[in-house]
Each structure stands twice: as C-alpha cells, then as structure tokens.
Design a protein around this nucleic acid. Structure first.
Lengths: 248, 248
DNA sequence: TATGAGAACTTGTACGAACAAGCCAGCGCC
DNA sequence: GGCGCTGGCTTGTTCGTACAAGTTCTCATA
C-alpha cells in the first residue's frame, strides 16, 4: 500500500513533468489540493515537501508554491548503483572485475569500516560499450564471502548482494572532486595519462549505520556529471576545502 | 522567534556533535523527546526530519533513529557563495574581476535566463592566497546595472547585491563534472594546460523562480571538493550522462 | 495617479488523537 | 540449544483544529 501523500506527490510530479503547471507558475493552494484529493492539509503538505526535496518546486510563507524546473530526480538507488542508474535511463552498460584480493586495511579504511581486513576489488564499468568508470572498492571483512561469490562480470553488485544476502545499502556519504588519470586509469579508460577524471569517493552503510564499503570511483571526463538542486533552507550538497593548507 | 522544532533540532544536533549520542547509537524515542521538551510528537518529528535531511541521523519504521555521522552541514549560502563559504570556514580569500562586458546571449543562455542580452563577467577567486577558481558568469540583463556598480575586487558578490538591490539568491541548480584546463584557465590558475579542473555549472533564481545568472566555475584540482550525504528516500544528488551518444 | 493602510488569502507552526506497520526481545516449544 | 511466534515498543501515516506570519490585492485617500 502506497502512502497517500506519495500518491499525491506522484500526481503533482507527473503534472509538472507533463507541463500542466508551467515552470515559474504557481501551484494551486494547499487548501484547494486538499479538497481536490479529499485529504487533510497536512497530508498535502507532506506531498509538497517531497517535491521541494526533489527541487521541483519552491515554497515560502504566504506565497503559493512555484514550479522551479522539470528535471526528474532519480532515486537513491540510482545514485548509488551504476547499473540501476544506467538501466533506468536506458543505456547499454556492462562491468568487469579486473582484480580482487584480501588485504590488510589501511589506517583510513580501518577507521571508516571498522575492520582490520578488507576485500579489495578493481572494476571497470562501461556505458554504451565504452569504458567510462574505474571503481576501486574496499569491502568490510564481513562482506568478503558474499562479494567473492559474485561473478566477475556481475551487472549490478547492489542487486546481487540484496538477492544473495539481503543486504541493503541505506546511507551514503560522497565526496566529489577532480583528479588526473594515472597510468593505470588511463589505460583502463582509454584516455591519455593526466587526463581529467571526475572522482567520487564514497562510503556506504546499512540501515543500522554499519559501514559496508568505501570506494574510489573515477569517471572519464564528459561521460557523467552530477546534478544537484538546492534552495535556502534545504541544501544537500556542501563544499569542502582540499589540502591547501598542507601544501608548501 | 525561532520555531520550536528548530530549537529541538539545534539541541539534538549539538548533542550529536558533542558526542552525547555516539555514532551508531540510538536516539531516545520520539515519545521521550516529546516529553523532555514538553512538545507534541509531531513537533519532535519535524526536528528529526531536519537532522535526517542533514544526513546526521537515519530512521526507519519500528526502530529508533540512529546517529550516522558527526559532520556538520553548511547552509545554502555557503554552497552558493564562495565568500560566505570561505569566511565560515576561516579561510583567507579574495577575488578580482578580469573582464566584464555586455553581449548578446547565446541560445542556451537566452533559454535559461529569458533575456536577449547578458552581462558577461570573468572573475578569479583565491583561497589562502592561491588562485583556485575561475568564474565565468552571465547575468540576466535586468541585473546589469547592479553588477556593473560593484567594485572589481568585490569580496562577496552575493552579499553586495543583497545590500544594494535586496536581491536574494533563493534556488540553484548545479551540474558538476571534470574538464581539462584550457590555455586561459591554466594561466589564470597557475597550472599546466590540460590539468584536471572540477567544473560546477550553475543557474540561480530568485524566490519567484526568476533566473538571475548562469555560471561556469572551474576549481583547480585538489583545492575544493563537494560533499553529499544521502539515504534511501532522500537523495539530493543525481547522476547525469554526458555526451556519450553524440560522440563518434 | 501614486501611495499607504488594511483585508483576504496562503503558507508555517503546533497541538492532540488514532491507527497501521515494522522491529525486537523474551517466551515457549521441539 | 535452537527455533518460531507473540506481544510490547517505536516509528510512519492521517485526520482535524487553531493560530502565527508573510504575501498580495483592493480600495480609500492624498
């Protein structure tokens, strides 16, 4: 059973995407939406909060909500899982494990994952038959067996782990910056050494907050971009300084 | 007057940051928090929703909320305004306008800003006395006079525009990827041509959804990173494909 | 015509209640 | 000991009400 506010949010989202409510125009008042859906105003407000979080609409006290854009925001799974994102957008995609071994955790990994040993996996992912992503992932030691059981060309690691051990990636923290391609990155992605890569370092945890993996993903420039919408009072993305102060 | 739920959220945030509630531990139940603050459960839930949006805690039906992390999330202003972000984090910073002229809007700019003419501004920003950011901004034509009135070494454009014409940047859309430094970028940032840069393209609007500016900001690699926390059911950042399909 | 006060409208905050749905520990059974 | 089940606890959803606070439009006045 889908919650009522979600159905209202879905309907409003569809209307916005279909152009019923133009960008820059005002939505009907909460009272009117409540009457139209035979729901309480609080329920409508929950639905609107969903769309605000998606960046589709903006709202402020006293004035009606306005439509900000028509871009669809994907789900958490699509941000976390390359396969789910690619599939949802209709791309051909693939993946291949190139190296996989157990090793001692570095100090940083140990602090983040809470284990002394990790399973180190190097994967390359392709989009539209071109390699676009080099993924270096360290899994916590209690994940080792489940990950080693996966086939090397596993399409979606996230889905496979859910099917095999019921693991759900629930929370993620991501750090995004740019780096130059090293010799190995360059060879794997088919670019020149020193080419710009978009790097996404992430750490993922379960529902209970238990760390599962930390990963260093590098995208070939031009293949993928990250998009974020924000507003006063709701801003997901923050900026962090690099290592300026430690440089000579 | 600060809203009650905000004060509760502030108190809980402080407690988490101070380590009263350890990472991975459970928060008191909503009922207990409500009793402690003499507030309704709905009010406490609003406070918790704030912390969920900040990525500090996670929650799921049936189980108590758990503490996910201790990183503080900055405000919208700090993401949008280089100066406010740098100041809030205690960095030395500066800025300088290198070129500024009116010109016809490109087709893309015209579509985004809704004006035929734009004011094109090229700025370089420094952090800790090193140039780290090249900013190419196109302002909508109705902004021209206010921007031209700013001093070339204006520290914070956002604040100056608020003071002079009461303009508030309320909503933003950002697209983040990596590019190679061109000859001019390289000279301005003091890096080699072809070096990786972190690019943030953004478009900003007022409260009413009226577009104010669109900008192409390029950070020297290593100087700045973007951070995002997400969870199932709340994810701000999305991935977008580049121009894969249009390539030969 | 321009301006300012005010009314009407709209969103934000807060309360209280009730039920649904999921989690977990403890209990009893095999 | 191990297993499954149940009952209590906890969060999720929804309703209804009331008032606070901000916006917008109207209308009277200068």
């Amino acid at each position: 059973m889908v919650a009522r506010y979600e159905r209202i949010a879905d309907e409003l989202r569809d209307e916005i995407l279909a152009g019923v409510h133009e960008v820059g125009s005002q939505l009907p008042s909460e009272a009117e939406l409540a009457a139209r859906h035979a729901a309480a105003r609080g329920t409508v407000r929950q639905a609107l909060a969903v769309l605000v979080a998606e960046g589709l609409i903006g709202s402020r006290q006293g004035a009606r909500s306005i439509v900000l854009g028509r871009a669809r925001s994907q789900s958490f799974a699509e941000l976390h899982s390359f396969a789910q994102w690619a599939r949802a957008n209709g791309y051909r995609f693939g993946g291949q494990v190139l190296a996989q071994r157990r090793r001692r955790a570095t100090a940083a990994e140990s602090a983040r994952l809470g284990t002394e040993e990790v399973l180190d996996v190097l994967r390359v992912r392709s989009l539209e038959d071109e390699p676009v992503l080099v993924e270096r992932t360290a899994y916590a030691s209690w994940m080792t067996e489940a990950v080693e059981a996966l086939p090397p060309d596993c399409e979606s690691v996230t889905e496979a782990l859910y099917d095999s051990v019921g693991l759900v990636f629930a929370y993620g923290e991501h750090l995004i910056d740019a780096v130059a391609a090293g010799a190995r990155d360059a060879r794997l992605l088919g670019v020149r050494r020193g080419s710009p890569l978009l790097r996404q370092r992430r750490i993922t945890t379960t529902h209970e907050g238990r760390p599962v993996e930390c990963s260093d993903d590098r995208y070939r420039a031009g293949s993928v971009a990250f998009s974020v919408r924000n507003s006063i009072g709701a801003n997901p993305l923050i900026r962090q300084a690099g290592d300026l102060r430690s440089r000579p």
